[in-house]
Design a protein around this nucleic acid. Structure first.
Lengths: 200, 200, 200, 200
DNA sequence: TATGAATGAGGTTTCATTCAT
DNA sequence: CATGAATGAAACCTCATTCAT
């Protein structure tokens, strides 16, 4: 019954299922929030039985934490790729571009972040804080390098600025996608860039 | 039928209760979100019995909607007071100041707005949209006056800019209060103003 | 404050209130049943405040029991008036007529009786049983007199027949009022009489 | 996807549960009425957890509506079987017999019908009206056939008579079971038949 | 005599989680 | 690897009753 040569197929199938569950969950949570999204909803949208959610994740919270980790890991990677080998000011521009691109592709995830990031007292707050730190640190390192090299203003408070930049990028992009999706990306990017240059 | 002073006393008592419920609810929802906040929690914090919540509001959702309305009405009023009789660029600065001041005083309400404003598919989405429109329209009118008088750039897309300004003010202020509350207001206001001036 | 000469007016006012509450309650309970009818409903329909219900009756159940008593007392009286001084067969006919007349005037009360009379396990079951007994005993006495005088069949089981007659009169009349109110009373009475004569 | 015998086993299990819930509910509602019967009561008597009630029925009301449908479908079927192939007067007698038999077997359901059928303004009134129509139509068809063939009086108002017959059968049978269960069926049936023959 | 705000026990309903298949 | 019936704790909400005015 559990023959070795099918293990691969099974693993793949399982990965598929997890992926489907991630996608279903991220959409629903973006729309309604974590608490308002039921495991039934998720299973229904992912087209699996409810038990399958628990076969693949320890709990609803665990599913959500994996989701956050997965998403932010990806964002961090894209941030790192964007700045790699670029001089400070160019790197900052590349970060803005990368963030915008990411949010465009994963709008639901971005909405979800915007909703959860500035709350307090939730189970996963600790996890989220750590993950936030991880993504923002790429921005911070870039700004710090700019300050060190003299390309950016010496008085810049790097920690504060990175945090704000991340936040501003998030709202502006999400606001765009939700309330004026007909606007071209380039325009939004230009607007964002103007803000960022001024602020740094 | 009933004597006036009796009715008055009763009305006042009831208004007190509603106010207490609003305060309890706004804090809890800011911390945990709407769905994660129970009516028991709210009643407990407001120091009334659970039934009292339902005597004063038709449902948990209705309480939340009144809360939103109440908060945004106040914000709108403060916006209006801020711009009254001021020339365009000064009016914009006054708006930023007013928003910051409001958020500082009603941090919980601001966190709650940040969490709910860019979602989709919640019961009160329609209400929220209208309320958002109401607050943002003050910004829009101000910007429009500036464009008309030549004080602001003619190419400015007023609708888009008002929406973005509102959002940016919200994240920056909340990010400040949540992650670096030790920073002085003036500094945050300066930073925000720099962004805004650049963007308009 | 409590001067003697106004006591009369007060009593009258109170009686008015009770009457209004009875009327409101009987209608609502006929429509929805006792448990589904709330004290709020009753107060609303009687156009008094909720507290007034409790000022006039000890409890919701007490109000209902008084209602039952009041209604059945009246029915019993009308039964007694109908049979008074009549020979057996004529008395039976008069009873049928009286019951029909009563139900026509107090349709709600009749619906309510039909709904409650053949249940078990309700708080007021005991009260209701006694009241039922009281009304039915008039029928039983009449039938017994008929049997004794030889006007009615000797084999007639008086207890059983009175019970059945009461029930049949109730359903037939209520069914008429609810499902074919356009039919003339006389016709219904003729139909009912045919049944009764045959059965006795 | 799932093997057939698994699905079957599951279906059977679920049907069992629903049946148990129907039985528990019908008894309790007959005793106390719909509103006074709690979901806890039902679950307790059916020996399932409360959640199971809601896994199987959308709401307490939905459970009750399915119950009504289920019961009246069965009664209708027995009515149809009773009249099948019989000449008019014999068919009428068979209907009376069938109704009595049904009520004897499902006393609770009959009590519940008697309590609900002549009310107004309840959620399920519409459903009940339709179901009532369905059962009564068998009686009406039978009477109509009798009138057409000349076996029954030509002046008979078929609609009114069917309705009344149904009602009279119900009260008489329930009155018997509740207040003089010691009486033999045959006697009750004879009494009922006398009424019916006279009325038709 | 009447009022209506407030209460809290208890009702209906939801939902994360378990488990036998 | 996946299923879906069942569970029960905990959520939302209702309502008979109390009480200060």
């Amino acid at each position: 019954m559990t023959e070795a040569h099918v293990a691969d197929g099974r693993t793949r199938r399982r990965e598929d299922t997890k992926q489907r569950l991630f996608e279903a969950a991220v959409e629903l949570i973006a729309e309604q929030g974590f608490s308002a999204t039921t495991v039934d909803d998720i299973a229904l949208r992912a087209k699996v039985a409810k038990g399958t959610v628990y076969y693949n994740f320890a709990s609803k919270t665990a599913l959500f934490e994996e989701l956050l980790r997965h998403g932010i890991d990806q964002l961090t990677e894209e941030f790192r790729a964007a700045v790699a080998g670029r001089p400070p000011r160019e790197a900052v521009a590349a970060l803005v571009h990368a963030q915008l691109e990411f949010i465009r592709r994963y709008q639901s995830f971005a909405q979800l972040l915007l909703s959860e990031m500035w709350r307090s007292n939730r189970e996963w707050q600790q996890t989220l804080l750590l993950l936030r730190e991880q993504a923002i640190s790429v921005i911070a390192e870039t700004l710090q390098a700019g300050v060190d090299s003299g390309d950016l203003r010496a008085e810049l408070d790097v920690r504060v600025a990175s945090s704000a930049l991340f936040g501003v990028g998030l709202v502006v992009a999400v606001d765009w996608l939700v309330f004026s999706p007909e606007r071209p990306v380039e325009e939004v990017e230009r607007g964002l860039m103007a803000i960022v240059q001024r602020a740094t």
